[in-house]
C-alpha cells in the first residue's frame, strides 16, 4: 500500500525511508512523517541556506526548487518528496561559479540582511524557468511571494532584470 518502508519508532508513528536528489547528489534519508522539507534541510542536513521566516507559506524565505519549480519548503512534508530533484541556494553555483542571478544580486546590492535572499534567488530561478515574466510589472507580480523586510525590492527587481537573459540562455536551474 505504501511505497516506502516504515521503520519502528518509540511510541510514535513510523519513520519512512526516501530517496531524492539534492543539489545534484542522490540521497537516501530516514524521515519522520511530520518533518517538513525545510526542517529536514536546516536541522538534519545542515543546509541552512533555505530560511524559515514564517513557517506558513507567508514570506517565501524557504523557497526551493523541486523538479525545477519553486515551492515553499516549509509547507511541504519531506516524506512527500520521495524521488524528487531538489535544488536549494547551496546548489545554484556550479563549479564555484556563481549563478547569473547570484552575481546580479551582488552587483545590484539586492539584499541587506540576507535572510530573504536565498528564497528570492530560488524564486527568481523558478521565475526564469516559468518564462512568464516579460515586463517589470510582471516580474514584480511574480516575485511578490517573497517578502523582503529590509525593503530591497528595487534592487531585487533590477538584479532579476539584469540576469533573466543569461538565465534563459543558460537554461540553468
Amino acid at each position: 500500500m505504501s511505497a516506502t518502508s516504515p521503520t519502528a519508532g518509540a511510541g510514535l508513528p513510523a519513520a519512512h525511508s526516501i530517496s531524492l536528489t539534492l543539489n545534484g547528489q542522490p540521497r537516501r534519508l530516514e524521515v519522520q512523517p511530520w518533518t517538513t522539507l525545510l526542517d529536514l534541510l536546516r536541522e538534519q542536513l545542515q543546509l541552512t541556506g533555505s530560511k524559515k521566516g514564517c513557517d506558513h507559506g507567508q514570506c517565501g524565505a524557504c523557497t526551493v526548487l523541486v523538479n525545477g519549480k519553486r515551492i515553499n519548503a516549509c509547507l511541504s512534508l519531506a516524506v512527500m518528496q520521495d524521488g524528487a530533484e531538489i535544488t536549494t541556494v547551496e546548489g545554484l553555483a556550479e563549479d564555484g561559479r556563481l549563478h547569473p542571478l547570484q552575481q546580479a544580486f551582488i552587483e545590484r546590492d539586492a539584499f541587506q540582511c540576507g535572510y530573504c535572499t536565498s528564497g528570492q534567488l530560488c524564486s527568481a530561478v523558478g521565475l526564469a524557468n516559468e518564462g512568464r515574466a516579460h515586463s517589470r510589472d510582471e516580474i514584480r507580480e511574480l516575485m511578490s511571494g517573497n517578502l523582503c523586510r529590509c525593503g530591497a525590492y528595487t534592487n531585487i527587481l533590477a538584479a532579476i532584470e539584469d540576469a533573466l537573459p543569461a538565465c534563459r540562455e543558460g537554461g540553468r536551474s
Binding site: L47, T48, T88, E90, L92, Q102, F105, F111, G114, Y115
Partner: peptide, 16 residues
C-alpha cells in the same frame, strides 16, 4: 562598492 559579505549571503553560507 559591493558588499564584502555578498558572496556569503547569495550562496546561503552566511550563518544566523
Amino acid at each position: 562598492l559591493d558588499r564584502v559579505d555578498g558572496p556569503l549571503k547569495v550562496t546561503g553560507q552566511a550563518q544566523y
